[in-house]
Simulated scan of single mutants.
Amino acid sequence: MPMTDHFDRLADQIKLGRDPASVRRRLEHAERLLERLFVIPGINRPIGLDVILDIVPGIGDVSAAVLGGWIVWEARNLGMSKWQMARMAGNVGFDFVLGLIPWVGAIPDFFFRSNTMNLKIIKRHLDRHYPESAIVEGEAIRR
């Protein structure tokens, strides 16, 4: 198979469009990567890159904040209000400040999921202003 066919299929899967449905999918994947990458056995609690990056003092916190800031930037491109943007930026900022505490900063980050909260704010906006972008989750039922 030619390499261009492979990249075309990959681009179709990623959906790098600017339409609200593509933005929703991108942000859901980013939130899953940052907050729910895998589940810790025994306690059944999901963690993602946001907690893992907190283990690296300084650089990890900045990296997680930049990734959280990208979610806020995508929300800005959707035309969300200044109040919503400030709230989301506050979530990312609070998460960043908590993570600055060396080693111990991962513990509050384990419970305070700024990217999940920001995704909920964005989904409410999308559901209100772009209802056609909603994705119905669950199983199809055949009768």
Rank of each mutant, 00 (worst) to 15 (best):
M1G: 13
T4E: 14
D5C: 08
D8F: 04
D8R: 15
D8C: 05
R9W: 06
I14T: 09
K15E: 14
G17F: 06
G17Y: 08
R18D: 12
D19E: 14
S22L: 08
V23N: 01
V23Y: 02
V23L: 08
R24V: 09
R24F: 03
R26K: 04
R26P: 00
E31D: 11
L33I: 13
L33S: 11
L34D: 00
V39C: 08
V39P: 00
P41T: 04
I43T: 05
I43V: 15
R45I: 10
R45A: 09
P46F: 07
I47C: 03
D50F: 04
D54T: 10
D54E: 06
V56L: 13
I59V: 14
G60E: 01
S63A: 15
L67H: 02
G68D: 01
W70R: 11
W70T: 00
V72C: 04
W73G: 02
E74F: 07
R76Y: 06
N77A: 11
L78G: 08
L78E: 09
S81H: 10
K82G: 12
W83H: 10
W83Q: 14
M85Y: 03
M88S: 01
M88T: 05
N91H: 15
N91V: 05
D95P: 00
L98D: 00
G99I: 02
G99W: 04
L100R: 04
I101A: 09
P102W: 09
W103S: 11
G105I: 07
G105H: 04
A106P: 00
F111D: 01
N115I: 08
K120T: 10
I121W: 00
I121V: 15
K123N: 14
K123T: 13
S133Q: 04
S133R: 02
A134N: 13
V136H: 12
G138L: 03
G138N: 02
E139Y: 11
E139R: 14
A140T: 11
A140E: 11
A140R: 14
